[in-house]
Design a binder for these strands. Structure first.
Length: 308
RNA sequence: GGACAGGUGGGAGAGUGGUUAAAUCCAGCAGACUGUAAAUCUGCCGUCCAUCGGGCUACGGUGGUUCGAAUCCACCCCUGUCCA
C-alpha cells in the first residue's frame, strides 16, 4: 500500500518522508497546496534542493504563481506520478499537509474542473440569487449545503453550469476512483507544536523571507496571485506595503500557522489515519515505525487503524 | 512636590446611571467542508448548575450617592506624559 505522511505544519513531515524514501527506495509526491508554486520557497518550507537531488520529488515547484492549482489537478498529477514511480520500481510516498488533496486521492473525486470564466459570471450574482438558482436546479443540494458559505454555493452552481446537471447527480458521474492509501498522521502535543511553529517562523525570517517576497514581486508576480494568499506571504506583503511592522507581521504569521495546524488536525480526526506520536523521536525512528506498520498490514488483512 | 491623562474580562480596546457578563478585534477551544483548502464557512469563549433557563462573582481599592453604578462623589493605591 502507498504510505501518505501528513500532519500539522511543523511536525516534521518533510524529513520523515525523506527518511522513509531512503529506507524503502521511494520517491516523494508532494501533497501540499502551496509547495506546488515556483519561487515560493522559504515560507512554504519546501523540501530543500539538496534533498531533491537525492530523492525524486513530484508535484513540487512547478506551477507559476499566478496559476490556479486544485484538488483535481493534484489527483491527476499524483496518479500519473504513482504510475511512473512504480514503473521505476520504486515506492511512491505521498507527503504533505493538505488534507483535502490526500483525501481526494484516497477516496476519489469527480472530474468536474474549475472554470474561471463561469466562476466570474457566478461571482457577479448576489449570494441570494445564487441560492435561489440552486434551489431551483438542485433542491437536494440546496438542502444540505452550507448557505452561509459563498464558496460552496458558487461551486455548486459552477458544477451545474459546466455539466448541465444538478450538482448532486453530476458529482457521481465519471467519478475518478480512489487509490488505497495508508495515512500516517504525525502528531505532537499542541503546546509543543506551537512552540516549534513559532521557532520556525523566526527561522524563515532569518533565512530571508522578506527578501524572497521582494524578489518574487520584482519578477512581476502580481500581489493578487493565488500563491500570495498563503500564510507568511500575505503578511510580509502587508509589511512591505508599510502597513505593519515586521514584528507584527511575524506575530500574525505565527498565529495563523497555529490555526492552520489545528485545521490539519481536525481534518483527520474523524477519518482513518494512523496516528504517530513524534515528540522526541528522530525522523529515522519514525520512518522505521511507519515501515513496520506498512509491512504488518500487508501481511495481515486485518485493518488496524487507530483513530486520532 | 505640582499639573494633566488614565486604570475594563488572557491581550488590545469600546462603553459615561438601568435594555451590560459588558461592543469589536486578537489569542484560545470545538467543528463543517469532494476542484480557490495555507482557502471558505460555523459554534463556544468569567464561573457554577443546567434543556429552555437559573445562580454567583466581575470593570484598581475602600467607602458613599441612588430604587439601580463599570458609569456620579470622596479618599487611597498604581501607571503614563508634562512642569518643577
Amino acid at each position: 500500500m502507498i504510505p501518505a505522511v501528513t500532519g500539522p505544519t511543523g511536525a516534521g513531515k518533510t524529513s520523515v518522508a525523506a527518511a522513509l524514501a531512503e529506507i524503502t527506495n521511494g520517491a516523494i509526491i508532494n501533497a501540499d497546496s502551496q509547495s506546488v508554486y515556483k519561487y515560493f520557497n522559504i515560507g512554504t518550507s519546501k523540501p530543500p534542493a539538496a534533498m531533491r537531488k537525492t530523492i525524486t520529488h513530484y508535484l513540487v515547484d512547478f506551477i507559476n504563481p499566478g496559476e490556479q492549482f486544485s484538488a483535481g489537478d493534484f489527483v491527476l498529477g499524483a496518479r500519473r506520478a504513482i504510475k511512473k514511480i512504480r514503473k521505476n520500481g520504486k515506492l511512491p510516498i505521498i507527503c504533505g499537509g493538505t488534507g483535502l488533496y490526500i483525501s481526494a486521492l484516497k477516496d476519489g473525486i469527480s472530474p468536474i474542473p474549475a472554470s474561471s470564466e463561469i466562476r466570474d459570471k457566478i461571482a457577479k450574482m448576489t449570494t441570494a440569487v445564487q441560492l435561489e438558482t440552486l434551489k431551483k436546479t438542485d433542491p437536494e443540494m440546496y438542502a444540505s449545503i452550507d448557505k452561509r458559505n459563498p464558496r460552496r454555493v458558487a461551486r455548486a452552481l459552477e458544477i451545474f453550469r459546466i455539466t448541465g446537471l444538478p450538482p448532486t447527480k453530476a458529482l457521481k458521474k465519471n467519478f475518478i476512483e480512489g487509490i488505497p492509501l495508508k495515512v500516517f498522521f504525525l502528531s505532537m502535543p499542541r503546546t509543543e507544536l506551537y512552540r516549534k511553529i513559532d521557532e520556525r517562523v523566526e527561522q524563515m525570517l532569518e533565512k530571508g523571507l522578506v527578501r524572497e517576497v521582494r524578489r518574487i514581486l520584482e519578477k512581476g508576480v502580481a500581489p493578487g496571485a493565488s500563491a500570495f494568499s498563503s500564510i507568511g506571504y500575505k503578511e510580509i506583503l502587508e509589511h512591505i506595503k508599510g502597513n505593519v511592522s515586521l514584528r507584527e507581521a511575524s506575530e500574525k504569521i505565527k498565529f495563523r500557522t497555529h490555526l492552520l495546524a489545528r485545521k490539519q488536525e481536525i481534518w483527520w480526526r474523524k477519518k482513518r489515519a494512523v496516528k504517530i506520536n513524534v515528540l522526541g523521536k528522530n525522523p529515522m525512528a519514525i520512518s522505521a515505525e511507519i515501515v513496520k506498520i506498512l509491512y504488518n498490514n500487508e501481511l495481515s488483512s486485518g485493518e488496524k487503524q487507530e483513530d486520532i
